[in-house]
Design a protein around this nucleic acid. Sequence first.
RNA 1: GCGGGUAUGGCGGAACUGGUAGACGCGCCAGACUCAAAAUCUGGUUUCCUUACGGAAGUGGGGGUUCGAUUCCCUCUACCCGCACCA
Length: 857
Amino acid sequence: MASPEVRYNFREAETKWQKVWADRKAFAAERNSKKPKYYVLEMFPYPSGRIHMGHVRNYTLGDVVARFKRAQGFNVLHPMGWDAFGLPAENAALERGIHPGPWTRQNIADMRGQLMPLGLSLDWDREIATCEPEYYRHEQKMFLDFLKAGLAYRKESWVNWDPVDHTVLANEQVIDGKGWRTGAPVEQRKLNQWFLKITHFAEDLLTSLDDLTRWPDKVRLMQSNWISRSEGARVFWPLVGGDGKDLGQSLEVFTTRPDTLFGASFCAISPQHPLAAKLAATNPALTTFIADCSAAGTATASIETAEKKGFDTGLKARHPFVADFDVPVYVANFVLMEYGAGAIFGCPGHDQRDMDFARKYGLHVACVVAPKDGDATAFANTLEAGNAAFVDDGVAVNSAFLNGLGTIAAKTKAIARLEELGCGKGTVQFRLRDWGVSRQRYWGCPIPIIHCQSCGAVPVPDKDLPVRLPEDVSFDKPGNPLERHPSWKHVACPACGKPALRETDTFDTFVESSWYFARYCSPAATDRPFDKAEAMSWLPVDQYIGGVEHAVLHLLYSRFFTRAMQTCGYLDLKEPFAGLFTQGMVCHETYKTAAGAWVEPGDIEKQGDGARHRKTGEAVTVGRSEKMSKSKKNTVDPQAIIDSYGADAARLFMLSDSPPERDLEWTTAGIDGAWRYLNRLWRMAAAAKDCAAGAPDRAHPLVRHCHRAISGVTDDLEKLRFNSAVAKLRELSNAIEELKPADAPAVYRFAVETVARLAGPLMPHVAAEIWASLGHASALIDESWPTFDAALLEESTVTVAVQVNGKLRGTISMAKGADKAAYETAALALPGVQTHLAGKPPKKVIVVPEKVVSVVA
RNA sequence: GCGGGUAUGGCGGAACUGGUAGACGCGCCAGACUCAAAAUCUGGUUUCCUUACGGAAGUGGGGGUUCGAUUCCCUCUACCCGCACCA
C-alpha cells in the first residue's frame, strides 16, 4: 500500500543534511558571542580503530544536549578529539610491526569517518589528538611549571609493576591486585618515579565535592571514599634495644585511636619500612620473612584471607605515657608502608586485627574502653578472655588521666598530652596518595627532564620544548624502546653542558586527559596550552558525559590538574566539570557453545527456548546479558546498524526505553521499532504538506496537547530524561494520528511541526527533512526552541478519583475551582460509592481538590 | 567485612512534593488490506473469578504510619556496583 515516496529515504536525507551542516559550519562555537555559553563534552575516545555501541550511546547523549541547548539560544561548544597515546598502539607495533604513530593516525581517520554519519553537532575545527607535539608540548611545559611550584617531585618508591605491560601502575589502576588493563598480578618494585602532588589538594578535593551538586551522588561518594580523610595522631615511641639500651631514635606510628594508648601491647612496622630493611641487614631470618611478605602480598589475589604474620625484631618500644611500659616491635605483613607512618601500635582489645595478632603471638590483651552503660569490670573480663575486639566508642577505663572520658573527649585529651610531652602530634591522614605518572613506555608524552651526573634532574629549557618522540624505534622486545634507542637519550646537560641522559619514561596517559577540556577552548594556541581568557569564558564544562568507570581515575586527576593549573596561573578555576552525567553500558546476551567458544549474536538463530549456530547448527547456551566486549563476542557493530537503518533510528533506539544512566539492553526488536516510528513521522509529514498553514485554533485539544508536549519534553531534555521525552513525543504522535488532516488542517500542520521541532535534538535528520518538506525556507537548526503557553497546559475540568476506604470506586469530572462541597456532593452521588456505603452516611469525607475524594465508610 | 544502589505485567520501562499503578515502546493475540507474503492499519493484552455486568488481588517478602503508600518508616531476601588488612 505504501507507495515508494511515502517511505522515508534516510540515506538520501542523512547525507544531504550532514553536508548542509558541514558546509555551513553550523556547529562552530562562536567567539565573542552575546549569547550565554554552554559547554557540552563527552569523554573523548581512545582511537582503537572502530567505534562501538558505547561510543554511539555516549555521543548521542551529548549531541542531544548540545542541539537542545543550541536551539535554546546558547552559544554551544561541543568539540571532539582523541585520547591518542596509550598501550594498544605499542601492542599493535609489537604484533604487526606497524609504528604507533601511523597506526594511531589511521585509526583516528577511520573513527572520524565512522562518527561523521551519526550526524553529531560537533565543532570539528577544534579537533585535537593528544599524541601530536602541538598538544603534548604544552603538557611538558605545564609539568615543568608544576615542578617549580612544588606540585611535582621525584622519589624512589615502591611501585605497582605490571609484568605484562612492563610498566608502572598507579594505585587507582590496580584492581583486585591486578593491572587494570592486562589483568596480570601486580608486583612490587622499587623505582625512581615522578609524582604529581595530588595530596596537596586532598582536603580541598574532598570538601569541594559538596559543591558539585550536578554530579551523581554515587560518584561523589566514590571520590570521597577514595580520598578518605581520617583524624588521629602521630605518636613517637622511643626505641630500646634487646639489652635495654636506649637506641636514641624513635618509631613513629599513626593511629586514629590515641585514646587506646594505654591498651597497647605491641608495635608493628611494615616489611617495607626502612627500619625493617636496616634490621634485616644483620638478620637473615628477617630478610627471608620480608621477602616472603612481598611475594605473598603481590602474587595472590587472596590478600583478604592471608594470615596475619609477624616477626619479632627483639627491639622494644617505650610507651609515651607510662614509664617502664615497653612493648615488643614486630615486622608484620598486614602493615602498609604507604599509609600513615608505615607503622602502628597494636591495641588488641579495640582492634580486631590487633586482637588476631595478639592471640597468635600470645601478647597481652587489655581493656581500655568500655560501653557507656553496664558493668565495666565484667565487660573487661569478658573482653580480655575472648577473641572479639570492642571497636565502638565508649568510655575510657584503665587509662590513667583518660579514665571516665568518652572516646571523642579521650582522643582530644590524649593528643593534647602527647603534644605537651613532645612525643606526638594530632594529625589528619588521607588515604589518597600522590599520583605516580612515570611509565616505562614509548607511546606517551616524554617527560622533559635531563639527568646529569653533577646537576641532577634538570628541566629541559623552554627553547628546547617540545621533547619529541623519536620516530626510528624498534619494538622487537618488550620494555621501553626509548631506553634502547641508540642516540635519543644522549644529550648535553642544559645546566653544565656535560654529557647527560634524557628521562626515558613517558607520562601516564591520564595526564593528557586531565586538561584536554581546556585545550578545546583554544586548540590552535601555539605559545601556551590555551588562552586564559578563552578558557575562562568556556569553563567549567556545563555538561560532561561519560562512563562511570572513570568515576575515580580520570575525574579525580582532572580536578587535581585544574587546581594545579590554577596554582601556576593558567586558569582561575578549581572545578573543571560543573555537571556530570554517567551513562550506563550497552549490553547484549552472550552465547557459548558446548566447547566453551563464544559465538557472535549475528551467528545465532533462536528457536523456541533454545538457540543454535546459524552456520554449524550446533546448540548454543544463552548466557546473561553483559557489557558488549570483544572477548565475549557479544558485540553488535554500530556501522552495520547505521548502514541499514540510518543514524536517526540508531539514535532513537539509544534514547528510548532505558534511562541513560542505566545499562541498555540492545535488541533487534528495538531498532525495528525505532525505524517504524521514523516512517510514521514521515507519513504524517506527507499528510501535513497538504494542510494550509495558518493560525491553529488554540482551544483545539490537539493544540493543547502540543503545548503540554513542549513543556514536558523541554523539562525532560533539561534533566536528561531522554526516554521520557521520547515517550511524550510518541504520545503526541499518537494523538496526531487520531485527527483527520482535513478536519482541522492548521491544527494538523501545527502539531506535525511541533513534533519535528521537538524531535530535532533527538533525530536531527528526519526532523530537518520534515521541516523542509513542509515548505520552510530556513533550516530547522536555525529555529529556536518552541515555547508553550502556560494557559493551554491545563484543562478547565479535571477528572478526580473517588475512593471508599482507600479503594477506587469511580471518578468524577469537576470544573476547576469547584468548592469542596461540590466535590463531596458529586462523589457521594456515584452509584459505586452508594453501593459501598450501603445506605449509611459516610463517617468522613476528605476532599483534596483536583486530586481525590476519599470517603470513609 | 565496610559503603552505596536496585527490585513495578511476558520484556524495557512510566507515575512531579503520598492521591485513578502499568504512560510510552517491544512482544504476543485477533481482525482489515493482499492470490499470498512483507509493509501498513484497527482492536485487545497485569493476574484470578465471571458468558457478561462486575468483583477480588496486585509495585521482591513481612510489618508499620495514613482517609489513602510504587512513593515515608522498620525488618528480611535477592541481585548489582565501589572499596577492601588504610591502623
